[in-house]
Design a protein around this nucleic acid. Sequence first.
DNA 1: CGTAAATTTGATACGTTTCAACCCTCGTGG
DNA 2: CCACGAGGGTTGAAACGTATCAAATTTACG
Lengths: 256, 256
Amino acid sequence: MLNTATQASSAARLAALQESSSQQASSRPIAEALKLIEAAVPVTRRLLHAGDKVYEVGERFHNLHIVHSGLFKLVNLAADGREQVVGLQFKGDWLGFDGIAAGRYNCDAIAMDIGEVWTVAYDALLQACARNPVLMTLLHGAMSREMTRDRDALLSICTLPADARVAEFLHNWARSLSDRGMRADQIMLRLTRAEIGNYLGMKLETVSRALSRLAKDGLIRFSDSGRRELAITNAQVLEAFVQRCLGADEAVLNCH
Amino acid sequence: MLNTATQASSAARLAALQESSSQQASSRPIAEALKLIEAAVPVTRRLLHAGDKVYEVGERFHNLHIVHSGLFKLVNLAADGREQVVGLQFKGDWLGFDGIAAGRYNCDAIAMDIGEVWTVAYDALLQACARNPVLMTLLHGAMSREMTRDRDALLSICTLPADARVAEFLHNWARSLSDRGMRADQIMLRLTRAEIGNYLGMKLETVSRALSRLAKDGLIRFSDSGRRELAITNAQVLEAFVQRCLGADEAVLNCH
DNA sequence: CGTAAATTTGATACGTTTCAACCCTCGTGG
DNA sequence: CCACGAGGGTTGAAACGTATCAAATTTACG
C-alpha cells in the first residue's frame, strides 16, 4: 500500500521474511565472540551494581563496552528532560556505539542489576580490526544487529496495541535469554512497570493492566515470589496472541 | 525518576546536552566524504525513480549504498504484513547497514523521487578501511549517527503528542536540508500523509490535521503549488512550539 | 478531460492516559 | 518488635487524544 512500485511477488517476499525471522540470526556463540575480543585487544573488566552508570550522556567517548553479565538499559535524554529507554542490553551486547559519531556518548547506560562489562579502547579495537578481519565482522555485525533490533522495536511500538506490545516484549526477553543459553521459562523482570512502559511507549498503569490480562488469560503466570518474576506458559501461544490482537486484518496478506 | 542511582548534577548534564544538541554534529562536509569514498573503492552509480527499490528485505547483502541525490525511505516489514517507515535518507546517508549482520537486507530501501545512489561492495570497502583509517572512521561515524537518529526518532514518537511530532518532523527535515547546504526555507514533502503518519506513528488524518493547525497558527505556510510543499516561517518558533505542546511540565527541569 | 489517488474536514468510537485509592513489601529506627 | 514511610504495584472511573468512518474537495496523471 505504501510502496507505489510494482513489486515482483509480495507473497514470496513475506514467506521469506517469515523464515528468516523465525530462524535465530545470532552469528556465532557469544562466548566465542568474547574470547576473540579478549585475545585481540586489552580488556578492562568492571563490576557494576544496580543504578551504576557505565557512561552517561555528554561524557567523552573513548571506549566501547561489552556486557559480560547482567542487564543494562540505554536511556536517551532530550534537552528538556524527557527520557526514553531505547535499548536493553544483555550478555554479549555492546554499549557505546552512540558515542562514535560525535566523540561523546549520546545516552546513559545504566546497570539494572549486578553485572560486569568488558571495556575496550576504541582506538585499540580499530587497530586490532585492521589486522584481523574476523574481529571487524564481529563489530559490524553487532552494530548492524543493534540497528535491526531498534527498528523492530519501533515497528512494534507504532503498529501494535498495548497488550500485544507487552506480550511481544516478554517474548523477546525470553528469546534473548534462550539465545544466550539461559533458562527462558522463568523471567525475572529487572525493570519497574514505569521503565517497561517507557520502553514500550505506554504508561505504567497500562503495563500493569496488560500483564494482569495476560495472566488472567493464562499466557503468563506470576511467580509466588512477587510480581517481578513470571513464567511464560507457552511461547508459541504468546506469539499467536500478538496476531490475534491485530484482528486478522493483516493476516489476509499472509494466507496465499 | 527512572534512574535510582545518585547522579552527580543533573542540571549540568542537561545544560551540556542542550549545547551538544544545538551544535551541528555532522563531522566533515558530505561532499568530502563522497570524494574520499570514490577515491578509495570502486563505485557503481545507479539512477532510480520514485518507487524503485535500491534493495529489498530478504535479498542477499553484498553492497552498501550512499545517497548521492534524492530521498529514500527505509521500510521495515513484519512477517504478518505490518510495515513501518524506519528511516528517511538524504544525500550522504548510507543504505544497507541492516544487512551486515545476517547477510541479508532487513528492510526495503525505496526511492521517493528521482535519485542517485553510489554502490560499493562491502568486502572492498572493508579492505579499503583496513588500509585507510579515515575511511573506517567515516563508516563507523555514519553507522553511529544513524543509531542516534533512530533513537531520537523513538524518543519523539514516545514522548510527544501528534502536533509536536509533526512540527519536529518538519524541523528535522529543514535541518537535514540546511546541513547539506540546500535551501531549507521551502520544503517539498516527497511523502504522502500516510507515509508521514506511518513514520511518525500516527494516522494520515492526524498528520493532515496537525499540518492544518500549524498553518492556521502561522508556523508554516503552504505553497501556492499544492499542499505537498510548504515554508517554515521561523524554525525557532517551530522548536518552541514543540515545548509548548509539553505544557511546561518538564520545562521546570530546565530552568536552573 | 476523466478517473483514481491524495487530502481535508467533521462526527463518532475507541484505547490509553490521568487521577485516585488502595494494597503489598521492605528497610529503618523508635 | 512493631510502627512507620517510601517505593512499587494493582485497579477503577473519568478525561483525553487519536483512530475510525464518512463525505466532500483537490490534485495527479494517462
